[in-house]
Computed example of a mutant assay.
Amino acid sequence: MSTEREPPVAAYDRAAASRILARFGAAEPFGRVGDAVSEQFLGGARRVDPQLTPLVAASGSHLTSSQLDYLSSRMRLCRSESVTSATHTVVWHDSDGVVNVTHCGPSALGAVVPVVARETTLAMWRALAANEDARPAPLSAGDQVTMAATTTDREPPETFRVGIDTISRALVQHAYLAGQTPYRGPAEFARGLRDSAIFLLGLDSTERRRSSEYLALGIAVLDLFTAA
């Protein structure tokens, strides 16, 4: 008869899940951010020609018909004049050869932010995959139960991958508002977001570090882009 106790049946426990992720984050899973800005992780120099297609606004509005329908059906208390919408659809092939479809505008930053945000995400994913020293030991049975009850992505590396992609999308969407800020260049805008700490609200220490790493790399990539 075994005297080992069964792992506790855990419910949602964000604090415990954060501690599990913190152990993974302590190993610098992306390496040093400065090292990630290299041809190895950025996929090499190349020309990107994003195709921009204007969104068609409904008559008398700056929003499209589908956006107005969404407001009326899902966000009835939100006035249309309070909504900032993208102005263009952006399509391009990233350095993995994948077709990306996103949006940009109405700020003057254009397609630079979504393209560079995607390449920054890919660079950090590649750095994560290449960093053998940061590969975590298998989770204990108790940690597996905690992660299963608390997060959608149960393995720390996948949680970090998804988190980086989420930060990327947030950066792109915040760029819609760049025209309402004092920032006129893409790298300057990314610095403004970093310094404002808007991405850090409500995050634990591991998530704050992940956000800071992403923004640091994104700013470095934007600096390289604008200096070219």
Rank of each mutant, 00 (worst) to 15 (best):
154 R>W: 10
92 W>C: 07
166 T>N: 13
113 V>K: 08
92 W>S: 09
150 T>I: 07
149 A>N: 03
130 A>W: 10
129 A>W: 04
136 P>S: 02
104 C>D: 01
130 A>D: 15
162 V>R: 15
180 Q>A: 09
142 G>V: 00
106 P>Y: 01
163 G>S: 14
145 V>W: 08
145 V>K: 09
129 A>Y: 00
160 F>A: 05
152 T>W: 14
162 V>F: 10
140 S>H: 05
130 A>Q: 13
125 W>C: 01
118 R>M: 02
82 S>Y: 08
105 G>R: 10
92 W>E: 01
126 R>C: 02
128 L>R: 09
167 I>R: 05
131 N>Y: 06
161 R>T: 09
144 Q>L: 02
155 E>R: 04
97 G>W: 07
101 V>G: 05
145 V>F: 02
90 V>H: 15
144 Q>C: 11
180 Q>W: 05
79 R>Q: 13
150 T>Y: 00
161 R>F: 01
180 Q>I: 10
126 R>W: 04
174 H>T: 03
97 G>P: 10
104 C>N: 00
178 A>K: 11
118 R>L: 01
83 V>Q: 07
119 E>M: 06
146 T>S: 12
98 V>F: 00
128 L>Y: 04
83 V>A: 03
84 T>H: 14
93 H>I: 01
128 L>H: 11
93 H>D: 15
77 L>H: 13
153 D>E: 15
176 Y>V: 09
145 V>I: 08
136 P>F: 09
159 T>F: 14
111 A>E: 13
142 G>L: 12
121 T>N: 06
145 V>Q: 14
105 G>D: 11
176 Y>L: 15
168 S>G: 14
160 F>K: 04
141 A>Q: 06
141 A>F: 01
106 P>Q: 04
170 A>M: 13
145 V>C: 05
81 E>K: 14
157 P>E: 10
154 R>G: 07
167 I>K: 05
152 T>N: 13
85 S>L: 02
81 E>M: 13
157 P>A: 14
88 H>M: 08
102 T>V: 02
120 T>S: 11
84 T>L: 14
156 P>Y: 10
